[in-house]
Nucleic acid binder design. Structure first.
Length: 229
DNA sequence: AAAAAAATAT
DNA sequence: CATATTTTTT
């Protein structure tokens, strides 16, 4: 019969249900310093030679909060009761999201999807992965930041060049949008991003373990995969 | 139904 | 390798 589940949850990129209990005692929005506003006034920063403003934009904030939510989903250990909002929209089978709560770091991923077909699951660019990506790109410079090199330096097993290429495409657009929308002032420093305040990422091995010649064989972390369709 | 993300094709 | 288009997920 029809397995039609009335999903009234607007999770992720939808509405947020406000839990007033959590807001009790907290200052009102009008009393808080807007995140979109720089902590250090432009004039003051200039006077004190503090040019590198992290460039906090609404997009950055949004990304950061997304990371926080992502963290909460996983850290839903103790706490009185489970979060009502973070239910996986399991269509058929519930997805097992990793195991160790504190993460050990050892991720032996046997993504031997058995089946012969190379129908790999969709790669999910988790904040950790993205951060790694950004770091590598930043270190390479827009000049050498090409999919192949990025993939190699990231050294994440299972990560394909196509994965990186696709993400890079989006990332470039993202950066572009940001630059165009940013203050069109005469600021030579244009590449101001990489502000991806992701929690402590002790989950991944060193970013670019490439001192001289690649020591292939270094087992690295694995990307987050989700069940494919 | 629309938007975002990732995959795939050119 | 870059960009465009299509598919999949939210």
């Amino acid at each position: 019969m029809g397995e039609e589940a009335p999903e009234e949850y607007e999770l992720g990129g939808g509405e947020h249900e406000r839990v007033m209990e959590w807001e009790a005692g907290l200052p009102g929005a009008d009393e808080l310093t807007p995140l979109s506003q720089a902590l250090v006034p432009a004039g003051l920063a200039a006077a004190f030679r503090i040019p590198p403003e992290p460039g906090r934009t609404l997009l950055d904030v949004h990304r950061a909060s997304a990371a926080t939510v992502s963290r909460l989903r996983r850290a839903s250990s103790s706490s009185s009761s489970s979060f009502p909002a973070f239910a996986s929209k399991g269509a058929g089978a519930d997805e097992a999201e990793s195991a160790g709560g504190a993460e050990g770091g050892n991720n032996n991923n046997n993504n031997t999807t058995s089946s012969s077909s190379s129908k790999r699951a969709r790669l999910v660019w988790t904040p950790q992965l993205h951060k790694r990506f950004v770091e590598v790109v930043a270190h390479l410079g827009m000049k050498n930041a090409v999919p192949k090199t990025i993939m190699q330096l990231m050294n994440v097993e299972g990560l394909t060049r196509e994965n990186v290429a696709s993400h890079l495409q989006k990332y470039r657009l993202y950066v572009k949008r940001m630059q165009g929308l940013s203050n069109e002032g005469p600021s030579p420093s244009d590449h101001i991003f990489a502000s991806t305040p992701v929690p402590h990422d002790h989950l991944l091995p060193p970013p670019y373990p490439m001192p001289h010649h690649a020591y292939a064989a270094a087992v690295s972390s694995y990307p987050h995969y989700h069940h494919a369709n």
